[in-house]
Write a protein that binds this DNA or RNA. Structure first.
Length: 335
DNA sequence: GCGACAG
DNA sequence: ATCTTGTCGC
């Protein structure tokens, strides 16, 4: 039963989303916060995570959200969680997080409750971090809401702040020699928004790496390279493969009941799965509305005395925003 | 009409 | 994101 696509949201909704992004952006930490991030060999890093959302072809609502955890440096799958979800928001460039993040947060939360020892120390996110229209892409969004270090990895250049996939850019790509080579992506304001990375020796198209949360750009690029067996970092690649497999096994086999759905060879069976995981599509979860999600984050952060003062105004604005009493935009630029 | 457009 | 076969290269 393929459901109909939601149209583009009204300007009013986009305005609320922009406010949400502006609020949460104040919580992004764009430097290394963990000891392993500064270690040359990432000593102390044992678990890397990846998330992805795959879609059902004729259906713009049904999707499979997946979270995988891999060992580091072996890059073997230790945990896999795939779940069918019903998307509520349409895809709008610049607002990807509002479509995908609620389900990914649910997956992280379930892992935190049921298998805390498997919690990844960093999450690779399919999409951009600070390399974004308003400096707050899906990798930042997921990072701030989960409080996990996150790395944004996009397969195509998001052309914002003067960045263009033009002849000069293509020439810089051509000059990348070996896997690990990269060049900075400088925005119009002179800020480095991310790096174009040749993820392995024989990759033509680069990856666009940017900071999501709690990690420096340098460490993000270095770790991304360290997690690439192929062009796409293994955590994201496994999340992608497994979510697509899940859809195929769940929806694509109905006409062939005699055949037992098989797992693709690229997807090795993980050691752990979430408890209660069913082969049937799970009931669609009910993510918090954007405003309440922000409120919950601020509520948690507010317990930390170091950030309480700085957040108090944002906390109030968030709560007021939820109630439909939005403060004027000027309130966000003061303080 | 033309170019942009993370996933 | 997804629609799609074969084909070229190691």
């Amino acid at each position: 039963m393929a459901r109909k696509a939601a149209g583009r949201p009204p300007e009013e909704t986009l305005s609320l989303w922009k406010r949400e992004q502006a609020l949460l952006k104040t919580l992004v930490v764009d430097r290394d916060t963990e000891a392993w991030q500064r270690d040359p060999a990432f000593s102390g890093l044992q678990r890397v995570g990846g998330v992805d959302v795959s879609f059902v072809k004729g259906d713009s609502v049904s999707a499979c959200a997946s979270l995988v955890v891999l060992s580091y440096p072996e890059l073997e799958v230790m945990y896999e969680d795939c779940r069918m979800v019903s998307l509520t928001a349409p895809y709008v460039s610049g607002f990807l997080a509002f479509r995908e993040v609620p389900f990914l947060v649910d997956a992280v939360q379930q892992l935190r409750e049921k298998e805390p020892r498997l919690m990844p120390q960093v999450l690779f996110v399919d999409g951009n971090g600070v390399l974004h229209h308003r400096g707050f892409g899906v990798a930042c969004h997921l990072g701030v809401v989960t409080d996990l270090p996150c790395i944004g990895v996009a397969k195509k250049l998001l052309q914002v702040d003067g960045l263009e996939n033009n002849a000069l850019h293509k020439e810089k790509i051509r000059l990348l020699k070996a896997g690990g080579d990269s060049f900075p992506l400088m925005g119009g304001s002179g800020t480095v928004l991310g790096m174009a990375l040749k993820s392995h020796d024989h990759s033509t198209k680069p990856l666009y790496v940017s900071v999501g949360h709690k990690m420096s750009l340098e460490a993000a690029v270095r770790l991304t390279h360290g997690c690439c067996k192929f062009r796409i970092p293994e955590p994201v690649r496994q999340a992608d493969i497994r979510s697509r497999d899940y859809i195929r096994r769940t929806l694509g086999v109905q006409g062939a009941p005699a055949l037992r759905p098989e797992r693709s060879k690229k997807a090795q069976r993980p050691k752990a799965c979430p408890q209660g995981a069913s082969e049937e599509p799970a009931a669609s979860s009910h993510p918090l509305p954007p405003g309440l999600l922000a409120a919950r984050v601020f509520q948690r952060r507010q317990r930390d005395p170091a950030t309480r003062k700085r957040l108090s105004w944002a906390w109030r604005a968030s709560v007021l925003g939820c109630a439909g009493f939005l403060a004027p935009a000027a309130a966000l630029t003061h303080h």
